[in-house]
Structures are given as C-alpha cells and as structure tokens.
Design a binder for these strands. Sequence first.
DNA 1: TCCTCAATCTTATCACTGATAAGATTATAT
DNA 2: ATATAATCTTATCAGTGATAAGATTGAGGA
Lengths: 189, 189
Amino acid sequence: MSKEAYHHGNLKQELIERGLEFIDQNGVESLSMRKLAILSGVSSAAPYAHFENKEAFLAEVQNYITERFVETLRKTYESCHDRQRVLLELGKSYVLFFDQNPLYYSFLFSHGDIDLNHYPPFQMFQSIASRVMKELHGGKMDEYEIHNKTLAMWAMVHGLAQLYTLPAFRMMEGQNAEQIENILSSVEI
Amino acid sequence: MSKEAYHHGNLKQELIERGLEFIDQNGVESLSMRKLAILSGVSSAAPYAHFENKEAFLAEVQNYITERFVETLRKTYESCHDRQRVLLELGKSYVLFFDQNPLYYSFLFSHGDIDLNHYPPFQMFQSIASRVMKELHGGKMDEYEIHNKTLAMWAMVHGLAQLYTLPAFRMMEGQNAEQIENILSSVEI
DNA sequence: TCCTCAATCTTATCACTGATAAGATTATAT
DNA sequence: ATATAATCTTATCAGTGATAAGATTGAGGA
C-alpha cells in the first residue's frame, strides 16, 4: 500500500483532512461519507475501502483531534515551571482549546462511545494534577483526598470548557484567557 | 383539538412518551420518527401532523426531561434548610439525576443547539448559588468574585455529572451519593 | 517482460430515514 | 346536517450508510 496510490493518490488522508475541516465548520451532525467522497472527487463507495464504516472513520478523525489536544496540553505543561501555577495553566489551556475550536467539543464528547476513563487528555490531566498536589500539599493529604480533589478539578475544567463552547461566552480574543483564569482561580484547590 | 382524538386517541402525547422511553433505553442516535410511529400503531407520516419536524419533536422531549430535572432540583432546594449544605445538596442532586438517567445527559447537552445561558436548570443553579454565597460570605466578596465562584461551581457540578454518565463511575446504588459528596466537598467554595 | 495478486475504485443496488403532497376520514362547531 | 379543520393514510422523493460484483491499476516475482 504505497502513499502515492493509484487513481486518487492519498484518499484516506484526504478524507480525514476534509472530515476535520467539515466538522470544524459545520459540526458532525450533517457530515456524510458521500459528501466527503464527492468533495474528494471519488465515488460514494470509495471511502469504504479505507474505513470499515462511518463510525470507524469518525474514530480516526477523533484521534487526530485528540492528538492535537494532548500536544497542546503537553506544551503548556512543559513550558511552565512554576509549580504553584502549573495546574492553573493546564486548566486554561484545556478550556482555551475548545474555546478556539468549539465544534470539536460536541464532536468528541457528544457521541457517547468515548471511554473518558482511558481518554489520553483525561489521564494526562489526572496524573499531572495528582502529582502536583502531592508535591504541594505533601503529607497533609491522604491519597483519597488527593484523588477527590483531582476529580473535582478536572470536572471544573471540563465543565468550563463546555461553557466556553457557547456563543455567549466567547467574547473578544485575548479577554477569555484572563476571564478563565479568574474563574478557575476563584476556588481553592 | 380534543385530547381523546379520533383514530388513535392521543398520538402527540404517546409519541413523546415513547420517545422518552426510547432515549432512556437506546439513546437518541438510533431514534427515528418512523419507529416511534409504528410503535404507536400509526403510519410513518402521522407524527408530522403534530410536530413540524424531528428537531421540533426532540425539542419537546427535551422540555419534558428538563422539567423533571428542574423539579428534582427544586425539591432538593426546598427540603434543605441548612444554608451551609444547600449548595452541596443541590450539586449532589444535579449529578445524581444524570447518574440515574445517563443517556439523558448526552441527549440534552450533546446536540449543540441548546442555549445553556437560558437553560432553566443552569439559571436556577446560578441564582441559588449566588444568593447563598452572598448570604454566607456577605460583604467579604464583591459581585465579580461571587459570579466567578458561581460559574466555577456550576462547571464542577456539570462536569462531574458527565463523569458519572460513564459506566466505570457508576457503582452500586447508594454509594455514589456519598462519593459525589466527598468529591464536591473536597474543594472550598 | 509478463503475469499474478492484492489494493483501490466504480457502478448498481438495498434498506432506512426525514419529509412532503394529495387525498381520505372523522371530530367539532355552527 | 353541513361545513370546516384536525388527523391520519398512501404514495413518493431525495439523501444516507452499506454491500456485492466487477473493473482498473500498481507492485513484486517468475
């Protein structure tokens, strides 16, 4: 299976990219395999040579978005060396990702088949959060309390991300970051 | 338009009830107007005498669920007279509603067209939360901080509700309430 | 070079869905 | 009782996911 395949060339990749673009502009609701096929200059059945079904296709698109999301979080984490602020920065980064791509949120989390427990961004946030908390509040907290606080914090960040998905919450560029920081830092963890 | 209508009787009501039942058991993804029509012993076009389109039908089903949700929150609020605990109880009630009807969550919040800003349960939680906070922390906080804390708390509760939608988080009956309380009360508001 | 084989793509087709139009049936109000 | 409006059926449409059968082409081995 070469990458410069025959007839079309690189159909699988193009379908995924057009899928990303379509979801970003229109959401996943009105996406159809046929539309993507025609946009790619190919017959309506061609995509099924590369994806078992629509669900499998969407799963691959989800993976692309998830990779970019994780990469965003990772960069934020690595570029912040202030342990007092790292959780705040991570939360901000989490919310801003969906603030900038609001239609991705419902695409990722709406379709109920995602296993959030094994979802890389969730695991990443959890592991960083509990590590930082142990460093900060060291012996003063037992495992159970740290676990609870970690869940509480993730829930807050994730819920806030959904909130900033809504038109009414997305103001001018740049202002949101400050607003998000104020909200997140208004509760003590 | 009488309630004991001809031919079928009370089709509109029955469609909504069967819709509720179907979504509770199968989720909204695989729901079709035709299935509901046939289940109700009626032709596939009959529902369109009562609903302009599928979206309008689903909106009415959402309203039913929302009413029950608001009613649940209202009862919780009215039966708790301890101002130190009322926010905690309200949050628990919020999370438990979706813990008990997990498929309702994605149905209500997944389809992006909901205006959370004017969504009754959201408004209710917000107004109660900011009132209670004013009562408790009275003059020590300005409006802006109370607003931020209210949003933070709602985000946490709402995010936790989504978490308890997942199979891995729904343990034995009764245990969840305690667990949710521990998580919510692990952060200071 | 030729030939086989697998990957890729097209064409045709299926069942299902949302939706509408045209017409039949019946309740209700005058 | 008759007219009117609400309700329902029958046909039909376009769009969708999906599959089967067959055509096209690339790649590797003889």
